[in-house]
């Protein structure tokens, strides 16, 4: 699903965020991307989502070489990926329903399908019945659940998350991670960047450790 081959990323300011990264994540796998702050975790996820492009090396997503995807095609490429952010990135003047429906509206789904899928996604994250409220009426943990519901609403094969539990206390963090596990159980490939090593150890999935832009170690924690 994801294949990095000797990937380098140098930002325009000359900063080398990634230095020769190679790894592969199979379809249906769940993996954590760990490492100290500044190690390059966010940069790596941005390369997956085509928010940034590699300076050297190749990134294959679902067998597509991202370097060959032109600017105009990026939106269509992104529709195949669910993205979860630390700060949720919800639209605060739209209802919870509209937030979750956004990727479906963008992909021109039928109204009936949108209704059904939004409710299914909200059901999966335990927020069914709250769809008519605004995001501000929710706690931080609940807002992150809405973010996850939005990421999975269009049933992508791949979901990436950058510090999804960064703002949450340990109990809520575990809940959120369990949620990702449930999506993984039905076949969604999942890659989560986090620096919460304790949580990662506890869950026991594959771990890809970064350190100063290099692969530090790999394996099951």
């Amino acid at each position: 699903m994801i294949q990095f081959t000797s990937v380098h990323k140098r930002y325009p300011n000359g900063r080398d965020a990634l230095n020769g990264i190679s790894f592969e994540i199979a379809k249906g796998e769940m993996a954590f991307l760990t490492g100290p702050s500044g190690a390059g975790k966010s940069t790596l996820l941005k390369l997956v989502a085509l928010i940034e492009r590699p300076s050297r090396g190749t990134v294959l997503i679902n067998n597509h070489n991202t370097s060959r995807i032109r600017r105009r095609q990026i939106p269509y490429f992104r529709r195949q990926i669910g993205i979860v952010f630390q700060d949720h990135k919800l639209l605060h003047d739209r209802t919870i329903f509209d937030n979750v429906a956004l990727p479906l509206v963008i992909a021109a789904a039928r109204r009936r399908d949108i209704e059904r899928r939004v409710r299914a996604a909200l059901d999966q994250v335990g927020l069914l019945g709250r769809e008519h409220g605004l995001p501000v009426t929710l706690s931080a943990g609940e807002q992150q659940r809405v973010g996850i519901a939005r990421a999975v609403a269009s049933r992508p094969d791949l979901v990436i998350a950058d510090e999804p539990t960064g703002n949450l206390d340990p109990d809520l963090s575990l809940d959120i991670m369990r949620l990702f596990e449930r999506f993984n159980e039905v076949g969604v490939t999942i890659l989560i960047a986090t620096h919460d090593l304790e949580l990662v150890e506890r869950l026991g999935h594959r771990q890809i450790k970064l350190e100063a832009g290099r692969l530090a170690s790999e394996g099951l924690s």
């Binding site: 989502a49 928010i51 105009r72 939106p75 269509y76 490429f77 992104r78 529709r79 993205i83 990135k89 919800l90 639209l91 956004l102 990727p103 963008i106 992909a107 939005r150």
Partner: peptide, 8 residues
């Protein structure tokens, strides 16, 4: 946000 979730 709209660009991130695939808005053309």
């Amino acid at each position: 946000v709209v660009k991130l979730v695939g808005g053309s």
